[in-house]
Design a protein around this nucleic acid. Structure first.
Lengths: 222, 222
DNA sequence: AGTTATCAGCTTGTCTGAGGAGTTGGTTTC
DNA sequence: GAAACCAACTCCTCAGACAAGCTGATAACT
């Protein structure tokens, strides 16, 4: 038997499988730690770590003295997994939807503090575009885009963007590796243009420029 | 001192706080178990359980022999919870972003099967708008909107819409209760117009009509 | 009888000590 | 200079002990 995962993770997977199969109903108590340990043939502390992992994923909940209870039948959302599996073009289209609308809203709602964030992140991005490593540049680029989202003052859009970021980051770094000329680093003007439109309170222009920029990004990877 | 949380959970919160504060950069290694245990004044197994919990939340990753590493700066939020807590206007703006872009994509990608789905769901919606209970009408309305999303042929957008649906459904039913005249039920024409624009392969018009319709919905609840 | 107190026996929570297994970086050797 | 080696470090797993908390049954009381 090959053990590519630690025992605790394997135990967590096994428990998740059993929970998903309906072996224990919602809200029901699992067997005690010692019982489970004997069933799976591992130590008690290993079971405890498995339970703790599933507790972190909001599937189980343990109450001292009472037991361990099922609070969800499957790991909720798993957006990380969805995004990992999804085509990068699908992800970028999702990003485009979010960010274009955010740019539009930002143009109506931006505060002086938001504009300050634009100035800072744009300056960072300019510096990073010149001679920094790829990952620095990517971080600086994402920081500006996040500033745009923040200026929309919409918690849902912000959270959506943050969910997308890890996947986008990886895709961007991969893309840079294949692009020795660093062509994309020269689109500083496009970013400034988006910031300007938001500053000038022009929703349609901000949305259009955002759409244009992100469409270009999408085209470059497909 | 009252300890309503187990030590392991408190330790996990403390670690999450420090990670969020940037004490350890992304990808960086945390101090060893024994060091952390001494720092927080708890036992080693407690630290291990805290780390395991954050591993379940995809914030940390431990590699045997190497150490524990930061893989995300913040816990990926439970989307159900985020949406429950969020203002309904924020949610509707998110929906607007997703659905407007989906309408645009659908106009280029719709298949004959998609158009068929439009016809069926629109007919259902018309019937339900006349004399059905509120929840039937809401389901019929959402079914049409989901058909639009489906026609965009983008897995991420579809998944996003499905994540939003429960929250939207509840908000719509609440809204209907307060609206005895059923004014909203008369906007069948707006829905037909969206479907027509997609059928006629007019992305901008489809997006504009979708935006207009959803803006009206947003305005009616705020 | 009905209510309250108490308690035994479960449960999870925490700590410690001991090895096992894997990684890493420096040293030695060729 | 490159490959083999190794020691020190890391996490992984187990076992045992005791603390802390819950639950249901029994006993005591009103």
């Amino acid at each position: 038997m090959i053990r590519r995962h630690p025992l605790a993770e394997q135990a967590a997977e096994e428990l998740l499988r059993r929970i998903g199969s309906g072996e224990w109903a919602l809200g029901q108590k699992l067997p005690g730690e010692t019982t489970l340990a004997a069933q799976l043939g591992v130590g008690r502390s290993t079971i405890r770590e498995a339970v703790r992992e599933l507790a972190g994923r909001r599937v189980l909940e343990s109450r001292q003295g009472a037991g361990v209870f099922v609070i969800a039948h499957q790991a909720s959302e798993d957006w990380d997994k969805v995004l990992r599996r999804a085509d990068i073009t699908d992800v970028l289209e999702g990003r485009l939807a979010i960010e274009t609308e955010a740019a539009r809203l930002a143009a109506s709602r931006r505060t002086p503090a938001d504009l300050k964030a634009f100035r800072y992140t744009l300056a960072d991005r300019k510096r990073a575009s010149e001679n920094s490593p790829d990952d620095w540049y990517v971080e600086a680029d994402l920081a500006f885009h996040r500033a745009v989202i923040t200026a929309a003052h919409n918690a849902v859009l912000t959270e959506l963007f943050d969910t997308f970021v890890p996947r986008i980051r990886r895709a961007m770094i991969d893309m840079l590796r294949l692009d020795e000329q660093h062509r994309h680093r020269h689109d500083q003007a496009a970013h400034v243009a988006i910031a300007d439109a938001i500053r000038d309170r022009d929703p349609d222009l901000a949305a259009a420029r955002s759409r244009e920029h992100l469409s270009a990004v999408r085209s470059s990877v497909s």
